[in-house]
Computed example of a mutant assay.
Amino acid sequence: MGVVNSTVAIAGTSVLHVGLRVGPLTSNAIATLLATTLSFAGNRWWTFRHRRRSNLVQEYALFFVLNGAGLLIQLLAIAFAVRVLDRDDPVSYHVALLVGVAVASLVRFLSYKKWVFLPRERPVRAGARRPG
C-alpha cells in the first residue's frame, strides 16, 4: 500500500506544482491529504488486516495525526530545498520531495504498526500465568 499511496502523493504533487503552478508546499499538502485518505483504507483492510480492530473513529483520528507528522517531514524537506537552498527547479524539487516521502513513509509505517493497528492479543495458555 505504501508504494501506491506514495505514488499518489508524488504524482499529485508534481501535477499540482509543476503542471498547475500551485505553490510548492500547498501542492504537497493537497496531494498528501488525498493519499492519506486512500492510505487509511488500504492499511486498515489490506496491510494490517490481520491485526485487531479497535474503535474505527479512534484509529482514523490517530492515523491522521500520524500522517500529519509525516506531512510535516515532507514539507520540511521541500521547504529546505526551496527556501533555504533556493532550489525550486523541477529536479531539485522532486529530489526533496522523494527524500521527504521516503523518510515520512518509514516513520508512518512504524507508527501505524506501534500505535494505530495493534497486534491481536495472544491467548493465554491453560496453566500459564498472566503478566502483571
Results as ranks from 00 to 15, higher is better:
V101N: 04
D88H: 10
F80C: 08
W46E: 00
L33M: 14
V84G: 02
A128L: 09
P90D: 06
S105Q: 12
R129N: 08
Q74D: 13
Q58L: 10
R44Y: 07
R108T: 11
N5A: 07
R108F: 03
V95Q: 06
S6A: 15
R83N: 10
W45L: 12
G23E: 14
V84H: 10
A96Q: 06
V103N: 01
W115C: 09
V22P: 02
G19M: 07
R44D: 06
S6K: 02
R49P: 02
G2K: 01
L98A: 14
A69V: 15
F80K: 02
L25M: 12
V103C: 06
Y93W: 10
A104P: 03
S14H: 10
R87L: 14
H94E: 13
H17W: 11
S54L: 11
Y93C: 05
L85H: 07
F117S: 02
R129K: 13
R53A: 14
P24F: 11
R120T: 11
A128S: 14
L34K: 01
F117C: 01
L97M: 14
L56T: 12
F63P: 02
R52T: 07
L38S: 11
R44G: 04
I10S: 01
A35F: 01
P123Q: 10
A9P: 07
L97H: 02
L71M: 07
F63S: 03
T13G: 15
L72R: 04
T47M: 08
P131M: 03
V101C: 03
I73T: 14
R53H: 13
P90N: 08
R53C: 09
N28V: 12
T47N: 09
W46T: 05
V124A: 07
N43K: 07
T13W: 05
I73V: 15
A69D: 02
E121V: 14
V8N: 08
P131S: 04
A11P: 08
R51D: 02
A61S: 13
A77N: 03
P119A: 08
G70I: 08
Q74V: 15
T26N: 04
A104F: 04
S105T: 14
F63L: 03
Y60G: 00
L97Y: 03
A104S: 14
